[in-house]
């Protein structure tokens, strides 16, 4: 983390904040908008158990830009009107940020997602680690890849929104 400027860190933190604000605000299009427009952009959410054991299964596996956009379709069209909605609040803490090239950074952050399904009972939906590759494209930070690895192996509910 030698020559990381405050400015770069602020740009990266701002991206993470836009990400969680999009999710907590249920703006799934804005969520997709935090990812790079390159075809190789990926979002992968999987359990720490699968990760530790080397099993490839994920909970959400968007391994290209088109899949990320299709997740918008899942949520806004395919599942529309079928589920009891819940609110989320994401909390993150950046642990490390390493520069890989002029425009590429590797960022690791803890995350915790509180959710409210019953209005009188907020509780933890999942907690884990974000492993992100961030690119600065046209002066703006975007995720080239985001991996959400959750410790909450047995999730407490069905899952609608990305972690």
């Amino acid at each position: 983390m030698s020559s990381m400027t405050q400015e770069v860190l602020a740009t990266i933190d701002d991206l993470q904040n836009r990400y969680i604000a999009a999710l907590d605000g249920k703006d799934i299009t804005a969520w997709a908008g935090t990812f790079s427009e390159q075809d190789e952009a990926t979002y992968i959410c999987r359990s720490a158990e699968n990760e530790a054991m080397g099993w490839p299964i994920a909970l959400m596996l968007d391994d290209c830009r088109a899949r990320i956009l299709d997740r918008i379709t899942f949520i806004t069209k395919i599942w529309k009107g079928t589920f009891q909605d819940y609110r989320t609040r994401h909390f993150t803490q950046r642990l490390s940020c390493e520069q890989e090239s002029d425009t590429v950074f590797r960022v690791r952050s803890n995350f915790s997602i509180e959710y409210t399904l019953d209005p009188n009972a907020s509780s933890t939906l999942a907690t884990g680690l974000y492993e992100d590759v961030v690119v600065i494209e046209k002066g703006e930070a975007r995720f080239l890849s985001k991996r959400a690895v959750y410790d909450t192996t047995v999730l407490p509910n069905y899952i609608v929104y990305p972690f």
């Binding site: 299964i57 959400m60 599942w79 899952i159």
Partner: peptide, 17 residues
């Protein structure tokens, strides 16, 4: 892996409901 991960579990396209 990608089909199983996205279609038929607690967050699956044709099973979350």
């Amino acid at each position: 892996v990608r089909q199983a991960s996205n279609l038929l579990g607690p967050c699956g396209m044709i099973s979350m409901e």
